[in-house]
């Protein structure tokens, strides 16, 4: 009996040691786990409240479909925030590329030209912001704010009113439903998930990705270590712009039209999702998968509120409160990991 007690003791000890070393390695994961826990809580709460009508294959599938554009934006935003920057332009860029695509298609251009034009258009605005930030030393907040106004203005230049899209290839992205039982996924959803997968791969397993984290940790150290800081910093804004262009395509397919007033304030939703997903606003810590969780938390709250028939303004109050909670959680974790030293 004593022998078992001793063994219990040692297994317990080795378990705490494992937990310790896990925490030492992955302190940055904790906020992401917290986001996941909140997502599950939301699901459970809604399920209980709506008496089993919430967690249905239809609802969960719709969650991805309805938020595909936001997910793509959040992926791009994660790159920027990881370097310690911010990109306020993505909502406008999404609107501009969307209306641009709709206009090009309405003018009779083929899809093979219109779609690359949309994505390149987004990347180009990202490039301008990146160059401003890196080579003209403009604060990311200001540079991307300029990008926001530029893209919104360009959207109105393209068209003042909404342009309907009738191109079957674009509508296909939205209307095709690959079904498994009563679960379904659209090509737009697949694009969004692919974006997450590619981003996770790039961030964790390529030199470029690790340089992104390094810049967020300390830009001057990264420079002294001989990493290519300039190129990487420009590249994250290009990636964010590219993602915004892709989101423009997805949103156009989703709504079947381009509209210059689309996505006003969406950049803030994307930032909120990234922060809720556990990425530190000061950079260097966070995961793109966390941003995906953040988008789902955001989408779920929206769905719950529309199910309950409550005012949409509650949406913003709840997201605001969650954001506050997460920033406090992050501060606590950072303080803890510094205290462990």
């Amino acid at each position: 009996m004593t022998a078992t007690a001793v063994r219990d003791e040692t297994t317990k000890e080795s378990r705490t040691m494992k937990v310790e070393s896990f925490l030492g390695r992955h302190a940055a994961l904790m906020p992401t786990f917290a986001a996941l826990a909140i997502l599950l809580l939301l699901f459970a709460g809604a399920e209980a409240f709506l008496r089993g009508d919430f967690i249905t294959p239809r609802n969960i599938s719709a969650l991805l479909l309805d938020n595909a554009y936001l997910l793509v934006l959040a992926v791009g935003m994660t790159f920027v925030i990881l370097t310690g920057g911010i990109d306020l332009s993505v909502g406008s860029v999404m609107a501009f590329t969307g209306i641009l695509g709709a206009k090009l298609l309405a003018d009779g251009l083929p899809v093979v030209i219109a779609v690359p034009a949309i994505i390149l258009g987004g990347a180009l605005i990202g490039l301008v912001i990146g160059v401003l930030v890196q080579y003209f030393n403009v604060q990311p907040f200001i540079a991307s704010l300029a990008g926001l106004f530029l893209a919104r203005g360009l959207a109105f230049v393209v068209s003042l009113s909404s342009i309907k899209v009738e191109e079957p290839a674009i509508l296909w992205l939205q209307s095709t439903r690959i079904t498994v039982g009563s679960w379904y996924i659209t090509p737009t959803g697949i694009i969004a998930l692919l974006a997450v997968a590619v981003a996770a791969f790039v961030l964790h397993l390529t030199r470029f990705g690790r340089t992104v984290y390094a810049i967020g940790g300390s830009e001057s150290s990264a420079r002294l270590m001989g990493l290519n800081v300039a190129r990487t910093k420009v590249a994250v804004y290009v990636i964010s712009g590219l993602c915004a262009g892709l989101a423009g395509l997805i949103l156009t397919a989703y709504s079947g039209a381009g509209y210059p007033r689309n996505g006003i304030g969406t950049e803030l939703d994307a930032i909120a999702a990234v922060v809720i997903g556990g990425t530190l606003l000061t950079g260097g810590r966070g995961y793109v998968v966390g941003s995906m969780v953040g988008v789902f938390v955001y989408g779920t709250i929206k769905t719950i509120i529309s199910f309950m028939g409550a005012e949409q303004s509650w949406m913003q109050i709840i997201v605001g409160a969650l954001l506050l909670l997460f920033i406090v959680v992050q501060r606590a974790i950072v303080a803890r990991s510094e205290g462990r030293r």
């Binding site: 940055a28 984290y213 940790g217 300390s218 150290s221 270590m225 260097g284």
Partner: peptide, 12 residues
Amino acid sequence: TVYQEIDLLPNL
């Protein structure tokens, strides 16, 4: 070079 003040990345 190893610089005077440690210039490494605490987050990695």
